[in-house]
Design a protein around this nucleic acid. Structure first.
Length: 143
DNA sequence: GCTTTTTAGCCCG
DNA sequence: CGGGCTAAAAAGC
């Protein structure tokens, strides 16, 4: 596992890689370099199973609805899963709309969309269902 | 702008 | 399995 941080024209970028797959994470301008390295460390610790929550300030682009859904993801406890339907009921919307919003998740792991599964299956995950399985496994959740 | 299609779901027969 | 429901976003007009 490798995790690095860079400065780019639009903000800071954190890249982490495992098993040949790459996640790229973009941060807003307000993140200090010091905080940025701290963030990279948080991701690394999470992937090694030594950290349960990621916590740092971030601003992501999205509609009001999407941001509301993403925020709600962070209330799902570590190692716990909910279904699209349960989340939809909580947010007073429809399961498919939740799926749409999760698909647009700009910051996986920080917004733990892998903790949302379908009623009778694991559901989807952008960039590979293997990631979802792996992340759940890290959290000790066999699915 | 307004209309149609698409979607990481779900339920019923 | 196959349709019908559904809300949001994207694509089409």
């Amino acid at each position: 596992m490798n995790c690095q941080s860079f400065e780019t024209e639009s903000g800071y970028l954190c890249v982490y890689e495992k098993d040949g797959r790459v996640f790229k994470i973009q941060f807003n301008q307000r993140c200090e370099g010091k905080i940025n390295r701290e963030i990279a460390t948080q991701f690394q610790e999470y992937l090694e199973g030594r950290r349960k929550t990621l916590d740092f300030p971030v601003e992501v682009p999205g509609t009001e609805f999407q941001k509301r859904v993403w925020a709600s993801l962070r209330k799902i406890p570590y190692g716990h899963v909910v279904t699209y339907k349960e989340l939809a009921e909580k947010l007073k919307t429809a399961p498919r709309a939740v799926g749409q919003a999760l698909k647009a998740n700009p910051l996986p792991i920080y917004f733990p969309c892998h903790r949302v599964v379908a009623k009778d299956s694991i559901g989807g995950f952008t960039g590979g269902i293997q990631w979802k399985r792996m992340l759940l496994k890290i959290e000790g959740c066999e699915f």
